[in-house]
């Protein structure tokens, strides 16, 4: 038996992959299958599931009220709006995170070697605090009696201007700020890694061949750091699409995303069939966007390969 284990490479491979396979099947494939089955079911009054086959849950998600027909007064955009808002907010967050992370990563990558580790450490330090606590910190900053309004009021007072505290909390912008803050490190690290690998002689070569700073950036730096941007985008976009904590705390009842919808269906509304359908729609939306994105830009695999 052991003799065979020593010699048979295929057997070794099978044994090595077995634990992961068990976890993936038990905790991903089977639950996903159950979710699919439940999404076609009907809820009972006490939150149970009648296993049947109906598309009602999916129809409700795209705005068609079951049993009302296809008349325009039957169209209810509530859930379609939530889907659209989730998608646009995730895209906005990703775009803003790229814009903020890139210059910082560039700065860190070109700093002296000794300082780079300090800077990276500073990027990572907030991650040592609990995710929820960090979002609550933003609540303290953004609320009407919060830190930011305090500073603005003090400044206005100093300049002798009238000041009405701004209503910042429970707005889509507050959610956006919170999301950008939470996911920034996941963009900084891959972009930094790809920038750091660029041989500084390439910048000199570009300058030597007649490129000024802007053209060097567009023709050399940016293309060579694309793998980092792609990897970071995947790391940010997918979790942002599904997150509900940030919108829950900073958006309140005003900014409901698909993540919040799913959470509420399972916990508050006790409608697992609708929640399952929403989960699958979220997954499909994320897969579609990621599919087209990676088909155009790749997976950022060079960042791992080199």
């Amino acid at each position: 038996m052991f003799q065979r284990l020593r010699e048979d490479k295929a057997l070794q491979g099978t044994l090595l992959i077995l634990p992961t396979l068990a976890v993936m099947v038990g905790l991903l494939i089977i639950p996903l299958g159950l979710t699919l089955i439940i999404s076609f079911g009907q809820r009972t009054a006490d939150g149970g599931v009648i296993y049947t086959f109906t598309l009602d849950n999916y129809l409700r998600l795209v705005g068609i009220t079951p049993g009302c027909g296809f008349k325009s007064e039957c169209f209810d955009p509530l859930y379609a709006n939530i889907l659209w808002r989730s998608l646009t907010l995730a895209l906005q967050t990703t775009a803003l995170v790229i814009l903020l992370a890139y210059p910082l990563s560039y700065f860190i990558a070109r700093a002296p070697l000794k300082r780079r580790n300090t800077f990276l450490f500073m990027v990572l330090v907030p991650l040592w605090t609990n995710f929820v606590i960090r979002v609550y910190a933003w609540m303290m900053i953004l609320r009407t009696q919060g830190v930011l309004n305090g500073i603005l009021g003090w400044l206005a007072n100093l300049l002798g201007l009238p000041f009405v505290p701004l209503e910042m909390l429970y707005t889509p912008s507050a959610v956006l700020v919170g999301m950008v803050y939470e996911f920034l490190p996941f963009m900084i690290l891959p972009i930094y890694t790809s920038l750091e690998k660029i041989d500084p002689a390439l910048y000199e070569a570009a300058a030597d061949l007649g490129a000024n700073a802007a053209r060097t950036f567009l023709r050399v730096t940016l293309p060579l750091s694309m793998p980092g941007i792609v990897a970071g985008t995947i790391l940010v976009f997918i979790p942002v699409m599904g997150t509900f904590i940030v919108s829950d705390i900073l958006g309140g009842r005003q900014v409901i995303l698909i993540g919040n919808l799913i959470q509420r269906q399972f916990l508050d509304a006790r409608d697992p069939t609708f929640g399952s359908a929403a989960s699958l729609i979220l997954m499909v939306m994320t897969l579609i966007v990621t599919y087209f994105y990676t088909r155009k830009f790749g997976f950022g695999e060079e960042i791992v390969a080199v």
Partner: peptide, 20 residues
């Protein structure tokens, strides 16, 4: 004067070719 304004060109030790 910066390098891009000088009538000289360089061959680098590492070649510094653009891999992309």
């Amino acid at each position: 004067k910066p390098p891009f304004q000088r009538p000289v060109n360089t061959v680098f030790q590492s070649y510094a070719l653009f891999q992309h």
